[in-house]
Design a protein around this nucleic acid. Structure first.
Length: 215
DNA sequence: GCGACAG
DNA sequence: ATCTTGTCGC
């Protein structure tokens, strides 16, 4: 049993964060992906649920579930080491790679600017957007209608994303670029593909994930 | 030093 | 994340 080396993990995150590319999404939007996760502590297993949708009709074109043994506990700020490896394994089984992935968690919006979405984005060199359901940093509440947003900043005051109301009367999302997308892409694409609170691929991946360890 | 802290 | 029924509102 080797105890987790926090300093080493932080240094790795710092190195990977330097590799993040913030740039407009260049490829056409044919497919869009969503990834969510579920864990069973009793079984000691963690699962990734990946969904790929047609970007126009929002029909499922690809679906992958992959289960691994849990090798890491949940620690705020280190989620990528728990859920990242399962996603990267599942990604290899995807037959129709999407133009962009919506990931359940943060991208840039992270104490060291390397949330789960940025981690998997850099590791696999794919465009990713982080969509978190709760905040890492203090934030200003956007107006209570769909499309309203505020700038989301880290503790130093630098922008790391947006606090976005994807649906009127519902709690906002914390949206941040993961990799190979711009701030504007992260904002507009998340809003564009959200009929309910979560962007549609993420919502479906969430349903799929929560099924895995039930019954 | 203390509390807060994605899932 | 998860434990958990009915209930209120659009």
């Amino acid at each position: 049993m080797s105890p987790f080396n926090f300093d080493k993990a932080r240094r790795l995150q710092d190195i990977l964060a330097q590799k993040i590319r913030l740039e407009p999404l260049n490829r056409p939007l044919k497919f869009i992906g969503g990834a969510d996760f579920a864990a069973s502590e009793t079984q000691g297993k963690i699962a990734a649920a990946l969904i790929v949708l047609d970007a126009i009709f929002l029909e499922i074109v690809d679906k992958v579930i992959l289960i691994k043994r849990i090798n890491f506990p949940y620690l705020p700020g280190f989620l990528c080491f728990r859920e990242g490896p399962v996603f990267l394994s599942a990604l290899k089984k995807i037959k129709f790679p999407p133009s962009v992935w919506f990931i359940d968690g943060n991208g840039l919006a992270h104490p060291r600017h390397l949330g789960l979405a940025s981690f998997v984005g850099v590791m696999a060199d794919i465009p990713t957007i982080g969509c978190a359901k709760s905040a890492f940093f203090p934030y200003e509440e956007p107006d209570n209608f769909r499309g309203s947003f505020t700038i989301y900043r880290d503790r130093k005051g630098d922008q790391v994303g947006y606090c976005l109301r994807t649906r009127t009367g519902v709690k906002p999302l914390f949206v941040s670029p993961g990799h190979k997308v711009s701030f504007e892409d992260a904002l507009f694409l998340t809003l564009e593909f959200s009929r309910f609170r979560l962007p549609e691929p993420l919502r479906l991946a969430h349903f799929l994930a929560r099924q895995i360890f039930k019954s």
